[in-house]
Amino acid sequence: TTITITINGEELRIRGDHEEIHKILKAWEEDHNDEEIVRLIRELAER
């Protein structure tokens, strides 16, 4: 699965399995701050 998210003008492409993507979207849905979401995404992007 690949998704693209733009946060603060920075486009981040994430490839991951369903569970990893779900974790990010769940954090977003629960209204975590952008920095935390960006950190989760970067961790995935670095793999």
Rank of each mutant, 00 (worst) to 15 (best):
K23W: 15
E36P: 02
E30N: 13
R42P: 00
R39K: 09
W28K: 02
E30T: 13
L44R: 03
E36D: 10
T2E: 13
G16V: 06
H32A: 11
K26I: 06
I7P: 00
T2W: 15
E11F: 15
I7M: 06
I41Q: 00
R42E: 04
E35I: 11
K26Y: 07
D17T: 14
I41H: 01
I37G: 01
E36L: 09
E20A: 08
E20W: 13
E35V: 12
I37N: 03
E30P: 07
I14T: 01
L44G: 01
R39L: 07
T4V: 13
A45W: 10
D34V: 13
W28T: 01
L40M: 10
E11M: 15
E19S: 10
D34F: 14
I24P: 00
H32T: 08
I24G: 00
I41E: 00
A45C: 09
E11T: 15
N33Y: 14
I41Y: 02
I41V: 05
W28R: 02
I14C: 02
I7L: 07
V38D: 03
R47T: 13
R47K: 13
T6R: 13
E20G: 05
R47G: 10
V38K: 10
D31K: 11
T4W: 13
I14F: 08
E36I: 08
N33K: 05
H18W: 13
I7Y: 04
E30Y: 14
H22R: 12
L44F: 07
I21K: 01
A45E: 06
E36A: 12
E43C: 14
D31P: 04
I3T: 04
N8G: 10
T6A: 05
E20F: 13
T1W: 12
E43F: 13
A45Y: 07
E10M: 13
R15I: 11
V38S: 05
W28Y: 08
A27Q: 10
E30A: 15
E43Q: 13
I14Y: 03
T4Y: 14
D31R: 14
L40R: 10
K23D: 04
I41P: 00
E30S: 13
E19F: 13
E35R: 06
A27R: 15
R13Q: 06
E10A: 13
K26A: 09
R13P: 02
H18T: 11
T1C: 11
R15P: 04
H18A: 12
H18E: 11
T1K: 13
A27V: 06
T4C: 09
I3Q: 02
R47L: 14
D31W: 10
E29Y: 12
L12Y: 15
T4L: 10
A45I: 13
L44C: 02
I14K: 00
R39P: 01
G9M: 03
L40N: 02
L25T: 02
R47Y: 12
R42Y: 10
T2N: 05
G9Q: 03
E35H: 07
L40T: 04
I24T: 02
R39S: 05
E29F: 12
G16T: 05
H32L: 08
E11G: 04
I7C: 07
R42G: 03
H32I: 08
R39Y: 04
D34H: 06
A27H: 07
G16A: 09
E43V: 09
G16P: 02
I14V: 05
G9H: 04
R13K: 11
H22G: 06
G9I: 02
I21S: 01
R47M: 14
D17W: 10
E35N: 08
E10T: 15
I14W: 04
L40P: 00
E43P: 01
I41F: 04
I21E: 00
T6W: 15
I24K: 02
K26W: 09
I7G: 00
I3S: 02
R39G: 04
I21A: 03
E10L: 14
A27W: 11
E19T: 11
E36Q: 08
E20Q: 06
L12M: 07
R15V: 10
I41T: 01
E10R: 15
H22W: 15
N8H: 07
A45L: 13
G16M: 05
E30H: 12
G16L: 07
R15E: 06
D34K: 11
E20S: 11
E11N: 13
N33F: 14
L12S: 01
I5E: 00
E29C: 13
D31M: 12
R39E: 04
E20V: 10
E19P: 07
N33W: 14
N33H: 12
E30D: 10
R47I: 14
V38E: 06
G16N: 04
I7D: 00
R47S: 13
I21M: 10
A27F: 07
D17E: 11
A45R: 05
E43K: 13
R47A: 14
R42T: 04
H32M: 13
W28D: 00
H22M: 14
E11I: 15
A27Y: 06
A27M: 15
L25H: 02
R39F: 06
D17I: 05
L25W: 09
E46W: 12
R15L: 07
K23H: 06
K26L: 08
G9P: 00
I3Y: 07
L40V: 06
D34G: 10
E19H: 10
L12F: 15
I24L: 14
I24C: 02
E35K: 07
D31L: 10
E10I: 15
D34I: 13
H18L: 12
I37S: 02
E10Q: 15
D31V: 05
H22Q: 08
E46L: 15
R13A: 04
L40E: 02
I3F: 10
R47N: 13
E10D: 05
D17M: 08
R15N: 06
E29S: 14
D17H: 10
A45N: 08
E11D: 05
H18D: 08
G16Q: 03
I21H: 01
N33A: 09
H32Q: 13
W28I: 07
D34R: 09
I37R: 02
I41C: 02
I21N: 01
I7V: 08
N33I: 13
T2G: 04
N8E: 06
E11A: 15
R47H: 14
E11S: 15
R13G: 02
E36G: 07
E36K: 08
D31A: 09
E35M: 12
V38W: 15
E19C: 06
E20D: 09
E43H: 10
E36Y: 13
R39N: 05
T4G: 02
D34E: 09
V38C: 06
D34W: 13
L25Y: 12
V38T: 07
T2R: 05
D17N: 11
E11P: 12
G16K: 03
A27I: 10
E46C: 14
E19M: 09
E46P: 01
T6C: 14
